[in-house]
Design a protein around this nucleic acid. Structure first.
Length: 904
RNA sequence: GGACGCUUAGCUCAGUUGGUUAGAGCGUCUCGUUUACACCGAGAAGGUCGUAGGUUCGAGUCCUACAGCGUCCACCA
């Protein structure tokens, strides 16, 4: 056989016996993972400044880790995030990029404060904030956050994350605080941060404002009451919130509604439950005449919709619900201080008594509740800080290649353009639409919070004076007591972690970052806000790609929750199945933006694969580790058909997997690798290798390549094998095998195809055996007849063929004995000696049936090939492909006809 | 109310620009311990691709309508 090209030999380090021989049969992940991680970390591979020269000269590649909240521990969603980001980082590091993955944690303001409060209450305090005071309380929160950080970082390490710990950041550390203050100052100076008295979402439970995104809607039922303010009022109105009616300053009707036309413009002063109110009847097109009575009481203080109407019609605003979710003095003496439910009950009773209620219906309603805590959210006007998204401001620098420094734009325009222009690509693409939709509906962002844990608003007051500064401007100044929405500091994350507002080396090198990988559930909260902050402050995008993974659910697709008891914890699973298996289960069989149904069985399956790879490696190491074999192989460097086949396949897999990883087709890449490793390599090539022997050169090459290809997916087992084998350096910084893709040696591919044909014969022969009940242990006699070319090929590879089909003897070119069982395989007929136990009738029936199917198939192909429209319109390769299929089918038909003739 | 997604084998899901007998893993069934692996191997069964139309030489793939499930947004007071 011709020698295609030589393969460099790799020698194991140790000159002693095979490194594979002493390895345990089953891979024990937990006994090696921690040590491997420590070695990586110590080697400097996580730090771009300590990478090999090849990487130092490469292009920068940076991912900033979405900082887990310091609220306790990590969950499967974090595990998925880490698995995917580590995969990307390792892939690009191996490809020679200057790879940097920055770890960090998020103070998570309200979430963390609430967690600590709950903890203190559980420990016996009644009102921890009151009892401890701001400073002492904050100390407790800081302690808790510090503990969380330790736990989280340990878990991040457990996942095998190759992030640069020397660059670890915290959203609330000193440097990040500087960035936050600087950003606040800039935006304030540009007039896009401003203080204003507006309706905000108020969480009465935690006594703080919320952004629109922190309000959820819970489905429920509401009492829809149709009533009159008092006897004298000319017509009834409808509401689900009677207690807010003290704050009504208008009644709105549709301009074209004939029922109310006469009243438009009139002002009434009804006495509503003891409180005189003043309402003017206004016409507004926003009113649906078909809903309720077609007239609604306008409460500008407690409804954003009504507030908009109030602006249009110049209405007065009267606050009747206070921060404590109780009625204010504006509700009149009898109602002031009542809770909302109490007030509502009392009003309904009073209206009922007076006969003012026309009807009460139950209607479905979505109740606004706080995302955290679940308390009903009240809309109350207050003095707060806002980021104005629709206000034009003069840009501080050239921006996004569209605006010049000094030109005006709004934040919304910047956010939109970053994605419209393709400077940011979102995977999967459909979320692009969601993103635009969100931006188009975006309102000013309320950024001040009345909680204690967070970045203090850098604003100081003295009398009526106000100053924006991180430090006190002097004696007599007091700082704004509020803190900033946690997403304000998160929005700066890609560049604050790189040193901004300093113009650092890292910022120059690594920004914009390569990709932002996170769950789709925080597209608005976070991703969009990063785009806002970055385009504003740097005039550039924060990242080029956004990869959104799905939410991790249980095997029935339900959300994981403690109350359902269906929570899978990475920290339980890792000791049980190994980190690599957990990682694979979060990457393979998933698709971006699509929720992942995870089960322990799925992880078990990947644990099995980890073990399979381990044993493949063990087998190969045993082969290549034997010095005597190596000597023989050096002198006989010829390649068999199987060698050409597996090397061709390997080349294809390298090219394809690389392309897929570049396109973020992570799952597909992994599945292709698995099929190659388990299917082609283990089930076929290694079996052939056992028969043909003397393969250490090819085996070494394959092992090195698949370890590299698998490394980003399953870093631990691959690194462990790599080191056990004594291969050079460490796998984490090894070169990605793309350099192995040499120009395909001519003939190599055809020889690979020839092996495929042998493989088909083997499969068909095995099926024949199984159908006839000839168990594998029994050697059996075969005869193979048919196309000469194929017979020659099979004859040349008789030894392999015999082993694979467990044949005691194969007679070539002889027509099948009528007493033997037979099957048609491509262009040959395989017959098997079943020692006379053949059921001729049944065999004949089977052959006839198959013949009929084949004839039907051919007929279909012929019809298609006779179709002029098909011939003229279909591309030639499709037509040619069909032609080939027809020829093959015709050969099969001939063989089947032969069989039928023989049997009848 | 609006938008988006999903609907393919018993289960979980792939299926790239439409190309001709529809794939994987798990599960099921049969056989098997041949020293890499029983966390394994060999083989098998199993699908009118949600429904109805349409475009096309050709549709799981494109278009329209409908149905079921899910998610996000809006918030008719």
């Amino acid at each position: 056989m011709p020698r295609m090209f030589s393969i460099p030999m790799s020698r194991p380090n140790s000159s002693s016996a095979s490194p594979g021989a002493s390895l345990p049969k089953a891979y024990d992940a937990s006994s090696v993972e921690d040590e491997i991680y420590a070695d990586w970390e110590a080697s400097g591979a996580f730090n771009p400044d300590e990478l090999p020269a090849r990487n130092q000269n490469g292009d920068p590649y940076c991912i900033v880790m979405p900082p887990p909240n310091r609220t306790g521990t990590l969950h499967m969603g974090h595990a998925a995030m880490l698995a995917i980001e580590d995969l990307l980082i390792r892939f690009h590091r191996m490809r020679g990029k200057r790879a940097l993955w920055i770890p960090g944690t998020d103070h998570a303001a309200i979430a963390t404060q609430v967690k600590v409060e709950q903890k203190l209450i559980a420990e016996g305090m009644v009102n921890p904030r009151e009892e401890l005071g701001r400073e002492a309380f904050l100390e407790r929160v800081v302690d808790f956050a510090e503990e969380s950080r330790t736990t989280i970082n340990r878990q991040v390490r457990k996942m095998g994350s190759s992030c640069d710990w020397s660059r670890e950041k915290y959203t609330l550390d000193h440097e990040r605080n500087r960035a936050v203050n600087e950003m606040f100052r800039m935006m304030y100076e540009d007039g896009i941060i401003e203080r204003g008295y507006r309706i905000v979402n108020w969480d009465p439970q935690f006594q703080t404002t919320l952004s629109d995104d922190e309000v959820e809607y819970r489905e429920g039922k509401a009492q829809f009451v149709t009533f009159k303010y008092d006897e004298a009022f000319p017509f009834p109105i409808s509401t689900t919130r009677p207690e807010t009616k003290f704050g009504d300053t208008a009644v709105a009707v549709h301009p074209d509604d004939p029922r109310y036309k006469p009243y438009i413009g009139q002002t009434f002063e009804p006495v509503f439950c003891g409180k005189k109110i003043t309402v003017t009847v206004i016409a507004d097109a926003a009113v649906d005449p078909a809903f309720g009575t077609g007239a609604l009481g306008v409460t500008p203080a407690h409804s954003m919709v009504d507030a908009d109407m109030a602006v249009r019609h110049g209405l007065q605003t009267i606050v009747v619900i206070g921060k404590d979710a109780r009625m204010t003095a504006e509700a009149g003496e009898r109602y002031a201080d009542l809770t909302i439910p109490d007030a509502r009950r009392k009003i309904l009773a009073e209206l009922e008594d007076k006969g003012l209620i026309e009807k009460v219906e139950e209607i479905p309603q979505n109740l606004p509740v706080a995302q955290r805590g679940g308390a009903p959210v009240e809309q109350i006007p207050m003095e707060q800080w806002f980021i104005r998204v629709n206000k034009p401001f003069a840009l501080r620098q050239d921006t996004l290649g569209k605006w010049r420094k000094g030109e005006e734009a709004t934040l919304k325009e910047l956010m939109r353009h970053a994605v419209v222009s393709g400077q940011i690509n979102i995977y999967p693409d459909r979320f692009t639409k969601t993103y635009f939709h969100w931006i188009d509906h975006l309102r000013d962002w309320c950024i001040s919070r009345q909680i204690w844990f967070g970045h203090r608003i850098p604003v100081w007051y003295k009398g009526t004076e106000m100053a924006v500064s991180s430090e006190s401007p002097g004696r007599g100044w007091t700082q704004d007591p509020d803190t900033l929405d946690t997403w304000f500091s998160s929005g700066l994350w890609t560049f604050s972690t790189l040193g901004w507002p300093e113009r650092t080396h890292d910022l120059d090198a690594f920004h914009p970052t390569a990709v932002l990988e996170t769950g789709y559930d925080i597209l608005f909260f976070w991703v969009a806000r990063m785009v806002l902050m970055t385009t504003y402050a740097l005039g550039d995008v924060p990242f080029h790609d956004v990869y959104l993974h799905g939410l991790i659910r249980d095997e029935e697709g339900r959300k994981m929750s403690k109350s359902l008891g269906n929570v899978l914890d990475p920290l339980d699973l890792i000791p049980k199945y190994g980190t690599d298996a957990v990682r694979l289960s979060l990457v393979l069989g998933t698709s971006p933006g699509q929720d992942v149904n995870l089960s322990e069985d799925k992880i078990k399956g990947f644990r099995n694969f980890t073990n399979k790879l381990w044993n493949i490696s063990r087998f190969i190491l045993m082969q290549i580790g034997d010095p005597s074999i190596e000597r023989r192989a050096s002198s006989v460097a010829e390649r068999t058909l199987a060698d050409d086949w597996i090397l061709t396949r390997l080349t294809d897999v390298i090219v394809s997997v690389t392309a897929k990883l570049e396109k973020y087709e992570l799952s597909s890449a992994g599945e292709e690798l698995r099929d190659f490793t388990w299917g082609d390599l283990a089930d076929w090539y290694l079996e052939v290798a056992k028969i043909e022997g003397e393969k250490q050169a090819v085996l070494t090459r394959i092992l090195r390549s698949i370890l590299k290809l698998w490394h980003p997916f399953m870093p631990f087992v691959t690194e462990h094998v790599w080191k056990t084998a004594g291969f050079d350096r460490s796998l984490i910084t090894a070169e990605w095998p793309e350099h192995l893709v040499d120009p395909r040696a001519k003939g190599s591919m055809e020889r690979g195809t020839q092996f495929e044909r042998i493989r088909l014969v083997v499969t068909d022969a095995r099926r024949l055996r199984a159908e006839q009940g000839i168990e594998a242990a029994r050697m059996a006699a075969f005869s193979i007849s048919g196309a000469l070319e194929m017979l020659d090929l099979l004859k040349e590879n008789e030894a392999v063929l015999k082993q694979l089909i467990r044949a005691s003897d194969i007679r070539f070119g002889q027509e099948a004995d009528p007493s033997w069982a037979s099957t048609v395989s491509g262009t040959v007929t395989i017959a098997l000696n079943v020692a006379g136990s053949i059921d001729v009738k049944q065999e004949l029936q089977k052959a006839k049936k198959e013949l009929k199917e084949t004839e039907g198939y051919i007929k279909g192909l012929e019809r298609q090939l006779a179709n002029n429209e098909f011939i003229s319109k279909a591309p030639s390769h499709v037509v040619e492909g069909l032609e080939v299929k027809r020829q093959e089918a015709e050969q099969k038909r001939a063989a089947l006809q032969e069989t039928v003739k023989r049997l009848s």
